[in-house]
Design a protein around this nucleic acid. Structure first.
Lengths: 350, 350
DNA sequence: CTGAAAGCGCTTACAG
DNA sequence: CTGAAAGCGCTTACAG
């Protein structure tokens, strides 16, 4: 008599029933299920037929109890309020990792709650996850320190300071700044403003914030320019507007502005237009960030240096599954440069 | 000698070791772990101390083997290509469900691969999930039919045709259309165009597409107006641009346009401006859809009727966990009206 | 090539 | 209030 699953009162078929139906022992069925060697062709057929007929499905948890991997990955973004997450994270970060995981037959859990160090360790210890992908990695990140110390497998999207034998994939923000300046300087611009990440991000050691500013300074140096920048919120058109007014007051002959978000770029354009400067005729604007359709929503459409969060996160998940498939694999460290897409918002200086 | 975890060569503490350390039997530790009655205060303290000292963490899979729930939910969007998912789904759908799940101590798996009926059933049968949240539900949806037939717990974001004893939360698109017309008619508009979902969505029986068009017709009826609409892609500024040109040609004295995406609204505005009509002076534009900062990116900022995908998906996950906590719970059916936010793009007719 | 036996870590009746 | 025993569904040596 098959036992009942309490949740739905459907009978649950076990390996024992398959074995009985096929007239073989349980280990034989197990071998066939796991594609082990040494099974008679004829036996295999008989068992597979029984599996089909009974609609047998292996019980994942029981399998894992024998020490097997959980075949589950986690993706973690350390945000205080999950409600705000949507404004700082791209959907494609989810879909890219999920797709890669699915291809490699892993499940993926998205961790949203505030994760304590204890909870993180527990996820590994209680065999809930085999590995984790870390988002928004800080220069000095407790998660990295903890996982490294415990020797638990993980991969970063982003990177910390000490990268010794750690795997990561990161956006190359320094390269991005250099490319942005190359583009603008080539168009004749010499007075270039920068609207970057909030000061709080920089202070917290969040990679893009720190490295954007570094890259900005390197670029100024390379082209022998003096700079002016503001550290502002990413998700507010209004802040882009005000910061641009501010920049214009400090430096009225600005001919180009670089932003790190489409939203602040939109604010920037509004401010410029209000100052009687049309874009791109009187001032160029360009944005460094994730691709998507929004570059075309703004008028004029935005010239961008962009990355695909889908590709990045897809790669990250692959880094993780590769490492899990082969413990000996040396650390992989990948820096991805952005792609320049020239649209309407940048132009030769008058 | 604690056994080694093959993955990371850290010792794994089991309930047996806790029992030994505390000088009690295994069932006693188990009772304390699960807050069962009848445990001596003194014993409990001793065991808890041992748990602390050893850093013991229960092995989830072993626990589940005894028939316990997996405490895992899945979220499923039936898209062919995961790569495109980011353009049709809001990040907040992930974070809202994930947050609610986390509060209720559930894990959540995002299913991205093309899910076969067999795979879906297997997830329940092999005890991988306790329930699923369905996105992008069609009027006639194989997932709904299958799950209903098998009596597996699920919740829809959206809804199908036969809702008998099914739980769902859905955006009230008919109400949205009515509210949009109420707003515009009140401003004196009588000639109102509509840029709606692609024809393919309507033919496929995808709820928002079907019900938007229904609502549009109801609204025309209510206000005794004649309509003109186009079915176009959601994610392309260009298509909004062209469809608006098209609409203007058919009906030159259009004074308002309703769209279902910020992107097409942006295209619409571009087209209007190109026709020498400024927004909102010569023509109003408004959008029905998810909230976010993008209404402000467009110039002029968009008047919207908006829903919060975070709230919706949070509620959906709660519907699911409530049902799981209490099998007897009657089906919950929730229809959410959008909120009108008047910005700059709508204005009284001249 | 196949099966009997042990055991993964835990919980649940059943005795005491 | 506590423990000995059985068992969840599966896999893995170990014999044959």
């Amino acid at each position: 008599m098959p036992k009942k699953n309490p949740q739905n009162s459907k009978p649950v078929i076990t390996i024992a029933e398959v074995a009985k139906a096929a007239g073989v022992s349980i280990p034989t069925v197990s071998r066939i299920l796991n594609n082990k060697e040494y099974v008679a062709e004829e036996t295999r057929d008989r068992v597979n037929q029984a599996i089909q007929q009974l609609g047998y499905v292996p019980h994942i948890q029981a399998r894992q109890l024998r020490g097997a991997a959980s075949r589950t990955l986690a993706l973690h973004h350390p945000i205080e309020s999950p409600h705000d997450l949507s404004s700082v994270i791209e959907t494609s970060y989810f879909t890219g990792t999920a797709e890669a995981a699915s291809e490699k037959e892993y499940f993926i859990n998205f961790l949203v709650s505030q994760l304590t160090p204890e909870a993180l360790v527990n996820m590994y210890r209680s065999n809930q996850i085999d590995g984790i992908i870390l988002l928004q990695v800080r220069i000095d990140d407790w998660r990295v320190n903890l996982l490294r110390e415990n020797n638990y497998p993980f991969v970063m999207i982003g990177r910390c300071a000490d990268l010794e034998s750690l795997s990561f994939i990161d956006l190359d923000f320094e390269k991005a700044m250099l490319l942005a300046f190359d583009h603008l300087v080539e168009l004749g611009h010499r007075s270039i403003g920068f609207l970057t990440y909030p000061e709080s991000w920089n202070k917290a050691g969040i990679g893009p914030a720190v490295r954007s500013l570094d890259g900005y300074k390197q670029a100024l140096n390379k082209h022998d320019l003096s700079g002016c920048y503001r550290e502002i919120g990413l998700t507010s058109v209004e802040e882009g507007f005000e910061a641009t007014n501010d920049l214009l007051q400090e430096n009225p002959d600005l001919t180009a502005i670089i932003t790190v978000s489409h939203l602040t770029a939109a604010g920037s354009i509004k401010a410029l237009v209000q100052h009687g400067r049309s874009v791109p005729q009187d001032c160029s604007v360009m944005t460094i960030g994730f691709g998507g359709n929004f570059a075309n929503v703004v008028t004029p459409s935005l010239t961008t240096l962009e990355w695909s969060p889908y590709e990045i996160s897809y790669q990250a998940a692959l880094l993780m599954t590769d490492r899990l498939a082969n413990e000996q694999l040396p650390a992989q460290q990948i820096l991805v440069p952005p792609k320049l897409i020239v649209r309407e918002s940048t132009k030769e200086v008058n």
